[in-house]
Amino acid sequence: MKFAVLVFPGSNCDIDCYKAVEEIGESVDYVWHTATDLSAYDCILVPGGFSYGDYLRCGAISRFAPVMAEVAKAAEQGKFILGICNGFQILTEAGLLPGALRRNESMKFRCHDTVLKVVNNETPFTREYGKNEEVIIPIAHGEGNYYCDEETLETLKHNNQIVFTYGDNPNGSIADIAGICNERGNVIGMMPHPERAVNTLFGSEDGKRMFTSILKSWRDSHDTASIS
């Protein structure tokens, strides 16, 4: 399986994402934001950071980077797309996920471990977790306060698109939302950083199963379970 880690000017979690994929022994490339072909990749990771300096709004400018047209195409093809932190903000700005991320209610940049509940363990990204399992994954953001209107929230609940919720809401997100997926389930965005929790040396390895979940989902759909 082949992973791409997108790199925008100002990305700063790209190396963490790259290392997380290495941790599960799969092949991974950095892909610069000007790329116009992602056909070689099965999963696209949109990493955290401050792309384009977060000017105007987080993710507002990145969404017009040439590579984003390819990300939209990959989403349509059913490829796996995981946006983390700034990556989540970019995916909402691009309209690949509903809602928006606002300034934290506390006005503070919050950087610490959080307890997340796996609300939906049936997505390709979370299948190796138990239903309602509690996992420890860190956050590091100033603008992770998820917002959507009532109607959208009802749709998210109805379609089981809320993937992760916070145990102790750190930012004021509506319905304690930490991560959501699209209706089809192949695009997911989350503020917490699973790539920073892939080894007990980091304090938690609870994030690693997101990456092994993706791998397992890909293997199932490619009938290559025997190839390691």
């Binding site: 105007l56 507002a60 400018i61 017009f64 509903p98 809602g99 928006a100 917002y147 209107d149």
Partner: peptide, 8 residues
């Protein structure tokens, strides 16, 4: 398209 995010 860019200057405002009409969601919020």
């Amino acid at each position: 398209k860019l200057l405002a995010n009409t969601v919020v």
